[in-house]
Write a protein that binds this DNA or RNA. Structure first.
Lengths: 190, 190
DNA sequence: ACCTGAACACCGTTCAAGT
DNA sequence: ACCTGAACACCGTTCAAGT
């Protein structure tokens, strides 16, 4: 899917310029950054942007794919270092902090955890994030510290909801951790 | 603030037509319903809409003020009938169900619980909703069933976050109640 | 005092023409 | 095969002219 014949040199150049500019624009203006502006700043026609990224969602995902994959890798680092229950909660915390601090990330994660009949699970972001939480949740349930009646994606959605609540509160990292801790108390088994 | 000299007859007619049409439009198209369309359907110029409701938020709030006040009254009904802890959780559940089922309500409640230095608390929706949760939370804390380190508005934001998570899950009433129950377990004292 | 609606600035999307 | 950018449809907001 990521392969196929290589792009023409000018197409590849445009593709990469668009990604770079888009990442800046989303960081600066959030998920609703002007697409026309991104095309202009990248020095391409707006049609070219649409050729490479047919939807805003596609561009957002491509611009943040590095960050999302780093988050997926982080799950395994934490799993290797902490007991399963703690690894899960620490990872959800890092997810929440990114939701708060990386502009546009909230929209991307929201669409990655939406129940849309599985379409979200097929996107890169959905695959990575849902895969990571699946591993962490299963381990914590096997350990016996997490309620067994929870689906991994439910844990993800609840943590995302708490992150959105933290955003409404204008919460910093400390407060976000506290809110997640409250949720964690409700999710613990026993 | 709601008084002042009475409106001219045509102004009042337009005001009421706008409210009626806006309620329908928000119900049908959600918080981003076209303002121009609302003006057209109400048979007034777009300038008239802006005269009466300078912001989208103002129109949304005016269109839903009845529902919000009903929710505030509901808090007292529940407080009179149930033990404090149960009354709080039942009210948060009803809040969440409205967030899911009444289009546009999510945006209205979000802005009512946002930490914006107190501006939200001065709107009708903010006053009503924050007042209601304050009474319920204080009672539950006095009863000893709710953690004492929680501010009322924090409880409101967390429940709102859970409601947003339920929306992402496409959850119905039953599932929403389950999610809120998980949060409730984390908020309980002891 | 209030209303109207044209005018403005902006945006996303498409597509015919060009290389 | 890919790019360009004008054209289109749409939106929120303002404001001069009208009653």
């Amino acid at each position: 899917m990521t392969q196929g014949r290589p792009m023409r040199a000018d197409a590849r150049r445009n593709y990469e310029r668009l990604l770079k500019v888009a990442a800046e624009a989303f960081a600066e203006h959030g998920e609703n950054a002007s697409l026309d502006d991104i095309a202009k700043r990248a020095g391409v026609g707006s049609g070219t942007l649409y050729r490479h990224f047919p939807t805003r969602r596609a561009l957002l995902e491509a611009a943040y794919v590095d960050r999302v994959e780093a988050l997926g890798a982080r799950a395994d680092e934490l799993a290797a270092r902490l007991p399963p229950g703690e690894a899960l909660m620490e990872w959800l915390y890092e997810l929440a902090v990114r939701t708060l601090q990386v502009r546009g990330m909230k929209a991307l994660l929201s669409s990655a955890v939406t129940d849309d009949g599985g379409a979200a699970a097929l996107t890169v972001c959905g695959t990575v994030v849902q895969g990571a939480v699946h591993r962490l949740v299963v381990a914590a349930q096997a350990e016996g510290t997490l309620r067994r009646d929870l689906e991994p994606v439910e844990v993800l959605r609840l943590a995302h909801g708490v992150a959105m609540a933290a955003e409404l509160a204008g919460a910093g990292e400390r407060e976000t951790r506290r809110y997640l801790g409250l949720l964690a108390d409700g999710l613990r088994s026993g």
